[in-house]
Computed example of a mutant assay.
Amino acid sequence: MPKILALDASTEVCSVALTCADKNWTETCDQPRSHAKVLLPMVDRLLKASGLELAELDAVAVTNGPGSFTGIRIGLGIAQGLAYGAKLPVVSIDTLSVLAQGFSMSHPERTSLTLVPALDARMAEVYWAAYELTESGLSVALAPAVAAPEAMLDRLSAISAGRELVGLGHGWQVADTAVLAEVYTGETPSALALATAAAAQLPAAAPSTEANLVGLVSVEPLYLRNEISWNKRERIRGQ
């Protein structure tokens, strides 16, 4: 396993993981709206526990959404700042696939499932996707999207024949779970699952020039909502 620092701040629960060979260090904080305050101290504690310096790592990994608009920006900003200062590449993974990866790691005996992570997107919508879990690993069945719960269920009904659907995440608290064989509404993205997923996408070569470095730390957020929708949400919250 490469030496990867992974940060997730995309939901109310934030987490950090540090991997090195067969050793892992993790920390989780369930304090909504405190991500900007707690993430860097969490990183410092894991680095001290591991005895590693940031510059000794192979990469920084971060979830780029969908999820909390503010949390995504905080996570990306901290990850990019740490990576740029230490001349490390950034690997970004979407939040929904990290949820699926976490379930796969926690249930290694389970295969032949369709995992359906869903997060409450507010405004009567959910962020969701579907992944096939087989002995070969995870593959995308339906790409990340934002939709009303009813629209999500319509899409799932079209692919559900002969499949065992497993729901993950708090988005299923606002959707009908009758289509599911199982549901785990308490599942949150795991930084350790993020690090595991990022290891497979790690760039083959380290940056050698300033231009390369700028490119390798550039990460695009996956909001799934356009700016108009976010402005509408902020107006509603302000009323």
Rank of each mutant, 00 (worst) to 15 (best):
M1K: 08
I4H: 04
A6L: 00
D8S: 01
A9V: 09
E12T: 09
V13Y: 03
S15F: 10
S15R: 07
V16M: 03
V16A: 06
A17R: 03
T19I: 11
W25F: 09
E27H: 12
T28A: 01
C29I: 09
R33S: 11
S34T: 12
H35L: 06
H35N: 04
A36I: 04
V43K: 06
V43R: 04
V43Q: 01
R45M: 11
A49P: 05
S50E: 08
L54K: 01
A55I: 00
L57F: 09
D58S: 09
D58W: 08
A61E: 14
S68F: 03
S68M: 06
S68E: 03
T70H: 02
T70C: 03
R73P: 08
I74C: 07
L76Q: 10
G77P: 05
Q80A: 09
L82P: 08
L82W: 05
Y84V: 06
G85K: 10
K87A: 14
K87D: 03
V90I: 10
V90P: 05
I93L: 00
D94Q: 04
T95M: 06
L99Y: 02
A100Y: 01
S106I: 04
S106D: 15
P108Q: 00
E109G: 11
R110Y: 14
R110A: 14
S112P: 01
S112F: 03
L115I: 02
L115M: 04
A124E: 13
V126S: 10
Y127S: 01
A130E: 07
A130D: 01
Y131I: 00
L133Y: 00
E135I: 05
S136Y: 13
S136H: 13
L138Y: 09
V140Q: 12
V140A: 11
A141K: 15
L142N: 01
P144Q: 03
P144K: 11
P144S: 02
A145D: 08
A148M: 10
L153K: 02
R155H: 15
S157W: 04
I159V: 15
E164W: 12
T177F: 08
A178N: 10
A178T: 06
L180D: 00
V183P: 01
V183G: 08
Y184S: 03
Y184M: 00
T185F: 11
T188M: 13
T188Y: 14
P189C: 03
P189L: 15
S190T: 08
A191C: 06
L192S: 07
L192R: 12
T196H: 05
A198F: 04
A199Q: 08
A200R: 08
A204R: 15
A204G: 11
T209Q: 12
E210F: 07
E210I: 05
N212M: 13
N212L: 11
L213Y: 04
V214A: 15
G215I: 09
L216V: 06
L216Y: 12
V217N: 06
S218V: 07
E220N: 09
L222F: 02
L222G: 00
Y223C: 07
R225A: 06
W230D: 13
W230G: 00
W230E: 14
R233F: 14
I236S: 10
I236N: 13
G238I: 00
G238C: 12
Q239F: 14
